[in-house]
């Protein structure tokens, strides 16, 4: 019934069908293109997010403690291992990874420095935009030479810095870090208690991340990649 009644109609009206099929075909084509484009974009988005190791939605999940809306740190100037005075402003455009320790430190500091070395290895070429600085909280014993020798044995790009008590307190306090000298055994000499966290400042000198002691170099490298310019 339908076939019989339909075919005469389409044959009878010659002019209108000529226009109508063209419209539907091009409309469908556009719809298909739009859907294809959307699917392509979605797939691209998923691939990009996955390749970056990010979740599909929302901000990247960091391993370290994220500091929200961080104010710029006040600038500080310390003595670097080459004897030069260097300030935070000298490192604009680079991610600055700050660690506070001292070369006589028996266990915690070497362990963290090794993780920082792993972090640099993991970062590979991206490491050129990252500057690791170990700040010694023991200026009495850590001369620039000694500190320089200590940090470069982990990675040649690492810098050591130190300063007077007043200069050091200005940096440590705003990074949530304390340090205090206390008596050790005659074999070790005095020891220094200090917070063993690693602080990450972005290229504008804002405190962005704090890694607790024990964060692996791999996790730190992953987090730093999200912050790289």
């Amino acid at each position: 019934m339908n076939e019989v009644s339909d075919s005469p109609e389409s044959e009878g009206e010659v002019r209108e069908p000529q226009v109508a099929p063209k419209k539907t075909v091009s409309g469908r084509l556009y719809a298909l293109l739009a859907v294809g484009l959307l699917l392509g974009l979605l797939l691209g988005w998923v691939l990009v997010r996955m390749s970056q190791g990010r979740p599909l939605f929302g901000p990247p999940q960091f391993h370290g403690l994220v500091i929200q809306s961080p104010p710029p740190l006040s600038n500080f100037t310390l003595t670097a291992t080459n004897g030069e005075r260097m300030s935070l402003l000298d490192f604009r455009g680079k991610l600055v990874v700050l660690y506070f320790g001292y070369t006589f430190c028996p266990d915690v500091c070497p362990a963290t420095m090794v993780e920082l070395k792993h972090m640099m290895e993991k970062l590979g070429r991206d490491g050129k935009d990252v500057q690791v600085i170990m700040v010694s909280v023991d200026p009495e014993r850590d001369t620039p030479d000694k500190l320089g020798e200590y940090v470069t044995q982990f990675d040649p790009s690492f810098i050591g810095m130190t300063g007077t008590d007043d200069e050091l307190l200005g940096v440590t306090t705003q990074l949530g870090i304390f340090y205090q000298k206390h008596e050790g055994t005659p074999a070790t000499g005095y020891l220094i208690d200090h917070t063993a966290t690693v602080s990450v400042l972005d290229e504008d000198g804002r405190l962005r991340l704090v890694f607790p002691f024990g964060t692996t170099g791999e996790d730190m490298a992953e987090d730093l990649r999200h912050l790289l310019p």
Partner: peptide, 9 residues
């Protein structure tokens, strides 16, 4: 989350 609290001893 205003900022990181200061460190002290």
């Amino acid at each position: 989350r205003i900022t990181l609290g200061p460190g002290y001893f």
